[in-house]
Design a protein around this nucleic acid. Structure first.
Length: 495
RNA sequence: GGCCCCAUCGUCUAGCCAGGUUAGGACACCGGCCUUUCAAGCCGGCGACACGGGUUCAAAUCCCGUUGGGGCUACCA
């Protein structure tokens, strides 16, 4: 592409909380667009509202973007460090007659707004200070009256937003109010700082959520007043919660960090987010970041809002986990296992094959890294719990003490300790005991990992090894013994 | 209230711009195969063009309206 090197896009979050999936999707689309066109992806922190901004949020945004793999080429720029720049631009606008001082107090305006509201009407700034004479203005300034700077919106005509997602969207200027550019504390508002920075940074494409579409005509007016070149605008649809309202904290955990902590893979999250509002146009659904970069285009971003579906994300994550080589999962599994107090140094050394085999065995049965770790944990510690469901289904109310004792003894003679030998031994035993092999299998499974389900039990046993299997069968025998001893006393409480 | 956006299975979507499809795929759900169990995998099923008018031989597709949903309407961004 001839003009590819000129693409400059930015992600401009305000650091007022964790990066949520909506913001992440916006960042992703910008990043993809930049990479697709060989352009620059720039990070800008919109922290002009110091009261709502925080250091932790800034750091959280960095961490979340890095985790997702969305590295930035320039920045981060902080708007709070560029305050003089915005004031310079305000002077420009004042001098060219595009802006004016407004001395109306916030209270006065709020009162008028209230009144209009009670009448069931909306209210726009009424232009009280729009046509103050030079003398009047000077008098107020001399009196050191509090003031803001407002943009003088042309009273007539139409402003058209040429949006890459929505097409041409027209706004009557008559419906736009004289919005504030500079607050009484001389800090810029969003409309000012956002436009000034986009101009200063040479932003060519503004890609942001559809909630900004109604603001865009105001910003276009500022561009025009400044005689600046307009960027291309694109407003991808919003991401909604299950109730169809814009996704927010009330919808539960939707921050990127949350998914990271729950054991989601960044690739899966990115992949899922890309599919919210964009599609390749065919049936493909699984994409690497690299593939997305190749395929992405604003043309294929659709214009209707999308409901965030945690189920599908979980499915995608499970697909990633089951298809990725065990080695790629090792680091995150190690972390998760360490958190559970189950990691041992030897798993990185002489027992490395063991952890790989465990991951391999369980990865297709786990939708998150946390689930994977939960599944693997019983293999690394003898202190695993017998899950109630498993006990109820396969242990409770069955005569297992004798049979399991027989299993324990039979396994003691198994040689070599292989899944074939183990299976042959158990099935033979079941036959001689005139039992269903399945009953012995299920009971053994609960005995060795405490669960009702697992990969093939003989594979599990082979991997677990003779000593551990013996110990676990012994534990179950002791447990059964205790239950039996306690039986008469507790029989009334059953059910 | 005003302004703006949007409308295909419960959800994400393809198809719409350049009208003619048994309206396709995915998640979820249900069933089957596999199997000692649970997943994975494979096979199958359920399930949608919001409504009403136009235009046209023909409308999911183009136009208008209605309804519904969402967003904006701050000295937040």
């Amino acid at each position: 592409m001839a003009d590819s090197s000129e693409v400059r896009v930015r992600f401009a979050p305000s650091p007022t909380g964790e990066l949520h999936v909506g913001g992440a999707r916006t960042a992703l689309f910008n990043w993809l667009y930049a990479k697709h066109h060989g352009g620059a992806f720039i990070l800008r922190i919109e922290d002009t509202d110091k009261g709502r901004s925080s250091e932790e949020s800034v750091q959280g945004i960095f961490d979340a973007l890095s985790w997702l793999g969305l590295d930035w080429d320039e920045g981060p720029l902080y708007q709070s460090e560029r305050l003089d720049l915005y004031r310079d631009y305000v002077s420009l606008l004042m001098n060219s007659g595009h802006a004016y001082y407004c001395f109306c107090s916030a209270e006065e305006i709020e009162a008028k707004r209230q009144e209009a509201q009670e009448q069931g009407d909306g209210w726009r700034y009424d232009g009280t200070c729009r046509d103050l004479s030079a003398d009047e203005v000077q008098a107020k300034l001399d009196a050191d009256a509090p003031k803001v700077v407002r943009f003088k919106v042309p009273t007539e005509g139409t402003t058209v937003v040429k949006d890459q997602v929505h097409g041409d969207v027209s706004f009557e200027r008559d419906n736009l109010e004289d919005f504030v550019l500079l607050r009484s504390d001389e800090k810029p508002t969003y409309h000012l700082s956002n436009v000034v920075d986009d101009i200063e940074m040479g932003i060519t494409h503004v890609i942001r959520g559809a909630d900004h579409l109604p603001n865009t005509p105001k910003q276009i007016l500022v561009y025009e007043a400044l005689d600046a070149k307009l960027p291309v605008f694109a407003h991808p649809p919003l991401i909604l919660g299950e109730d169809k309202k814009r996704l927010s904290k009330r919808h539960g955990a939707t921050s990127v960090t949350h998914f990271r902590d729950k054991g989601y893979l960044p690739g899966a999250v990115v992949n899922y987010l890309a599919l919210l509002g964009w599609s390749p146009g065919d049936d493909r659904e699984v994409f690497t970041l690299h593939e997305l970069t190749k395929e992405f285009s604003l043309e294929r971003v659709n214009s209707s809002n999308a409901v965030f579906d945690p189920e599908k994300l979980a499915w995608l994550n499970g697909k990633y986990i089951s298809e990725v080589p065990a080695g790629e999962l090792l680091n995150s599994v190690r972390d998760a296992l360490s958190n559970r107090g189950c990691w041992r140094e030897e798993l990185d050394m002489e027992r490395r094959d063991y952890i790989f085999a465990l991951i391999d065995l369980w990865q297709s049965r786990s939708r998150t890294i946390n689930e994977l770790a939960d599944n693997i944990a019983p293999f690394l510690t003898e202190a695993f719990p017998y899950l109630p469901d498993a006990v109820n289904a396969h242990i409770k109310g069955k005569e297992l003490l004798g049979p399991l004792q027989a299993v324990r003894e039979a396994f003691g003679k198994v040689d070599p300790w292989s899944q074939e030998e183990l299976e042959a031994t158990l099935r033979q035993l079941a036959e001689s005991l005139e039992m269903d092999a399945a009953d012995l299998i299920h009971a053994s499974r609960v005995a060795v990992i405490g669960k009702a389900s697992s990969p093939g039990i003989f594979e599990v046993l082979e991997l677990m090894g003779r000593n551990s299997t013996d110990a676990r069968l012994d534990r179950m025998l002791r447990y059964l013994g205790k239950v039996q001893a306690a039986q008469p006393a507790t029989s009334q409480t059953a059910g």
